[in-house]
Design a protein around this nucleic acid. Structure first.
Length: 103
DNA sequence: CCCTTGACCAAAC
DNA sequence: GGTTTGGCCAAGG
């Protein structure tokens, strides 16, 4: 499958994140060898591939849940079901569930 | 091609 | 520790 655009690459990397783990927009950008933190999030919002891509496993670098096309509330709910603790809109065990790629 | 916007980030105040 | 500022990259108008 040939990659088409930046967004497609971002999705591919995101799909590598195992269940019960989360990653950050920054980690994805770094995995793509770029610093387009913003472009990663923008791709999600524009393409709204929520049912196709586990974009609910992507949080901000400071541990906040961030945003979600279907609503942050939905995002938190999904994360909790995967064993991730959410507290006051932030991931409690952020570092413990944070998945890093092979940079 | 120029300008704006965005589910961001890190440093500075 | 919350807010402001500048920077970063990509896509749309």
């Amino acid at each position: 499958m040939a990659k088409k655009s930046f967004s497609s690459k971002a999705y591919s990397v995101l799909k590598k994140v195992p269940k019960g783990k989360v990653t950050t927009y920054k980690e994805i950008a770094l995995a793509l060898k770029t610093k387009a933190y913003r472009a990663v999030g923008r791709a999600m919002n524009k393409n709204k591939n929520a049912p196709k891509i586990p974009c609910h496993r992507v949080v901000k670098s400071n541990g906040e849940v961030g945003g979600y096309i279907l609503g942050t509330k939905t995002k938190e709910n999904l994360l909790r079901k995967e064993g991730i603790k959410i507290k006051n809109g932030k991931v409690s065990n952020f570092k413990e569930v944070l998945f890093k790629f092979n940079h």
